[in-house]
Design a protein around this nucleic acid. Structure first.
Lengths: 240, 240
DNA sequence: GAGTGGTCTAGACCACCCG
DNA sequence: GGGTGGTCTAGACCACTCG
């Protein structure tokens, strides 16, 4: 069952085995897993190792534990991906839309005060600004504006931005992208946004301000998303 | 340092001790913790127990680990609370606003199709609908509409809803509230919402549709929030 | 009372990072 | 090479649930 020689941690192999069984319906919602002692014997590992694998699935919401009862498959599998930084193309396709990105412009601009503060820079420091229009099935959904400090990654200027976001380029360059903090607001469309999204001025816009950080807490990118109010909504999971 | 007799798990005492030291600045951002072996010796526990406590803080974003280097205090402490179901009053006060809730109405209504489907009910089954207006420092911020299946908790009809949400009452009644899934949209204010929030009709509204679930995946409450577009934004953290 | 998950121990070996 | 975190073992005792 497990391969102790291939370098993949045993608890990861156990986690993936169990997840596979839940996904394929071998383990059904509401059903109890074998006990931890039992699983440890089956997998030929110690109970602590089984627990570590199960804990990951509990954190993901696929399982829950009841002391004195057992470990049970959740009825509802939390879509924790909605609380994660994910690839626009992958998620669009996963939701059944064909994604497309049109480059509107890419230039070096001096940082305005608000953006400089968000990125921990001095005012007027050079930024790379990348503006794109994101479409689903050919319909404009989002006006996407990205700001990255020029000194951080000058090569962004020559990268093709039609298949990934700037933070994904940074990740390829070895930056340990760790998390993002975003703020959602309801706004009205200004003239330019309205024209690009093919809606009326003053139509509703779901505005998203997102700052992306690397491991040690340094901000590396600011994003402004102007999302079509009637065609876009933002879904997420909250845990008690 | 630790109390092995008071019933609180050692790893929780260790976690809270370390968190306290980070919060109070004894451990500063960017600073390395003592090694796990060292901490185990200081706390008088095994290394696995120390790791369990540290892991919780890593999950919360307060620490990060680097193999071969050590465990380091994050520059930026993730506010994971924003990804959690939290108490309106507590969070408002924590952010420096004095919260207030005005009851607009509480009645039993038949479930419309969309709400019945969201809550896993038959159409027309009786629901308790609670409508309140939420204010911060006396300014109306949110028109809050809650729907709970009548059969689930009839006593909601007689509860005072001015200091907690319905799901908090359910929690007090022993329901294991586990998570919520919500969807945010930008909308324009209709006449009633505009009047209650003291804004113009067609002003921007951040609309939130939230479904609350218990442990086994059963939905127990649906919430519609109509948030003041200019005074309310929704902040959250995404993890890579 | 039997079975379950919750916690904890006292080791062990490894991969990785850095001086 | 020395120190760090990553993984794993083979036990142990406890609190809890349920029949």
């Amino acid at each position: 069952m497990l391969d102790k020689t291939d370098g993949v941690a045993l608890y990861i192999q156990i986690r993936d085995t169990l997840r596979e069984q839940i996904m394929t319906g071998v383990l059904k919602p509401g059903e109890k897993l074998p006990s931890e002692d039992d699983l440890a014997a089956r997998f030929g590992v110690s109970r602590m190792t089984v627990r570590r694998g199960i804990s990951d699935l509990v954190d993901m919401g696929m399982l829950y534990r009841r002391r004195g009862v057992g470990t049970i498959v959740s009825q509802f599998h939390l879509e924790r991906d909605h609380n994660r930084l994910t690839d626009f193309f992958e998620t669009a396709r996963a939701e059944g839309f064909e994604p497309e990105v049109r480059l509107l412009g890419k230039e070096v601009v001096p940082a305005k005060l608000a953006i400089a503060e968000a990125l921990g820079l001095q005012e007027s420091e050079p930024l790379i600004r990348i503006q794109t229009l994101r479409l689903a099935n050919g319909v404009p959904i989002t006006l996407y504006e990205e700001y990255v400090p020029y000194k951080l990654c000058p090569m962004l200027l020559t990268e093709d931005m039609r298949n990934r976001a700037a933070w994904q380029v940074l990740e390829e360059q070895g930056f340990a992208i760790k998390f993002a903090v975003q703020r959602l607001e309801a706004r009205l469309a200004d003239a330019r946004t309205a024209a690009l999204l093919n809606i009326e001025e003053d139509a509703p816009i779901l505005f998203k301000n997102r700052i992306i950080y690397i491991e040690d807490g340094t901000p590396v990118e600011l994003i402004h998303c102007h999302n079509h109010g009637n065609l876009y909504s933002s879904k997420m999971t909250l845990v008690r």
